[in-house]
Simulated assay, not measured.
Amino acid sequence: MDGLLSTLDLTDTGARTNEDIFTGPSQWAPMGRVFGGQVLAQSLVAAQRTVPSDRPVHSMHGYFLRPGDASENITFSVDRIHDGRSFSTRRTQAYQAGKPILSMIASFQEPDDGVAHQIEMPSDLPDPESLPSTADVLAGVDHPAARHWASQRPFDVRHSPSPIYLDVTGDRSPHQAVWMRAFGRLSDDLNQHRAALAYASDYSILEPILRAHGIAWATPGLKIASLDHAMWWHRDTRVDEWLLYVQESPTAGGGRGLSTGRIFTRDGVLVASVAQEGMVRVPDPSSFD
């Protein structure tokens, strides 16, 4: 988690020219590509730096344009599109080598009263303590990606049903749930928690697509990439306490799949919703039908 927080601590490189330009490092990744959740979270932090602290983010929509190089820093340019009486809108462009790798727009709102309701959290899922951690599942697997997932990620991730890192067991259903919690305690800065939640929201959101067809991450020739990512924050929460991420894929086709997710606190409060479309390519799709 210290590594993630360091990554989110952007440098204001536009201060001398009075521009909203920030720079941040990239986390090491086993395949050399920037993790999508990282650049999403950093883009949000850059936008947050230009908005009054009493206007938290409530929605974000981003497009992944190019794969990022995990060995290079990322530059973030923020456009102050609109500041109204209650809402602010920002566009963040993330660049490497002068080319955009992500384009994101986010909206911020002063807290307000209004009607309120939410759907119920599923009640038939196991507690996180009863599920194996990623480190437990991948113990003894000698591969850079496995070692990274097992011990170098800032979040404890636990699947229900079992994870699909190496194989897919049980029903081929486009549904799953993931318990997740940050390793270590974060500060009380809720903007930090919102950015960290954006980071973690990209971990497993496309997995229901793979699970529905019995495709594990370790499938030879599998190519998968996030195309876009939308997220809505409904209520404040902490990422250093257990959160339940309920996910499903309503459709896939044409080399793409759509997944949606809902994030609840352990006591059932709906704190965020997520949607993502991804590219999914396998060497012989018919063999997974």
Rank of each mutant, 00 (worst) to 15 (best):
E277T: 05
T134C: 08
R147L: 14
T7K: 01
D112V: 13
S160W: 10
R262M: 01
R33E: 11
A97G: 04
A47G: 08
T237N: 08
F87A: 10
M31S: 10
D167S: 15
P111R: 09
R147A: 14
L197Q: 02
V269G: 06
K223V: 15
L244Y: 02
L44S: 04
G68Q: 04
P144G: 11
W242C: 06
L4C: 12
P161M: 05
P250K: 09
A41H: 02
P250I: 09
V246P: 01
M279S: 13
I119N: 12
V39D: 03
V274N: 00
G254V: 11
A135H: 13
G37Q: 03
E19G: 05
R85T: 08
Q276K: 05
G214Q: 13
Q118S: 15
P122N: 09
G98D: 07
S107P: 00
L210M: 14
M1L: 14
P56Y: 07
W179G: 00
E248C: 03
R153T: 13
Y63D: 14
D189F: 07
Y95E: 08
A177C: 06
D112P: 05
P111M: 05
H148E: 13
L243R: 00
V51C: 03
E120T: 12
P154Q: 06
M231E: 06
F64S: 05
A177G: 04
G253E: 10
P208S: 09
Q48I: 06
G278D: 12
G24Q: 04
Q42W: 01
G84V: 05
D79N: 12
S286F: 11
G253F: 02
P161D: 11
R91S: 15
V274P: 00
F64R: 01
V178A: 02
A252I: 01
V280Q: 06
P67G: 11
P283A: 13
